[in-house]
């Protein structure tokens, strides 16, 4: 049954690279932040596939969760700046 893990890892890898490209070349800053959060969340599933549940939970709670929240808080503060490209 563990044969499903290899295609799953490939799928996740492709999704992460796609999301990372959106993160650095997206249309707007909020989209870039959302995509970075998605990269981290998918990375946590990949960590689980690599048999590291501890790291997966840390990445989900801290690496993805808190980082994204901090980003959006700061973005909410600097809103109104016309130079968001």
């Amino acid at each position: 049954m563990s044969t499903i893990m290899l295609p799953m890892a490939l799928l996740l890898a492709a999704a992460m690279i796609g999301a990372a490209l959106v993160a650095i070349r997206g249309d707007s800053v909020p989209i870039a932040m959302l995509a970075a959060g998605l990269v981290s969340l998918l990375a946590s599933v990949l960590f689980l596939l690599l048999a590291a549940p501890d790291v997966a939970m840390t990445e989900a709670a801290i690496g993805s969760g808190l980082t994204t929240f901090l980003f959006f808080f700061v973005l909410g503060r600097v809103r109104g700046d016309s130079k968001h490209d």
Partner: peptide
Amino acid sequence: NILRMIVSFTVADTGVNLVIVAVGY
């Protein structure tokens, strides 16, 4: 944009973590 530079930094950060965990697998 400074915020986008920070976003890119976190993407690279995730990549480094992934490499280290993969070495232990």
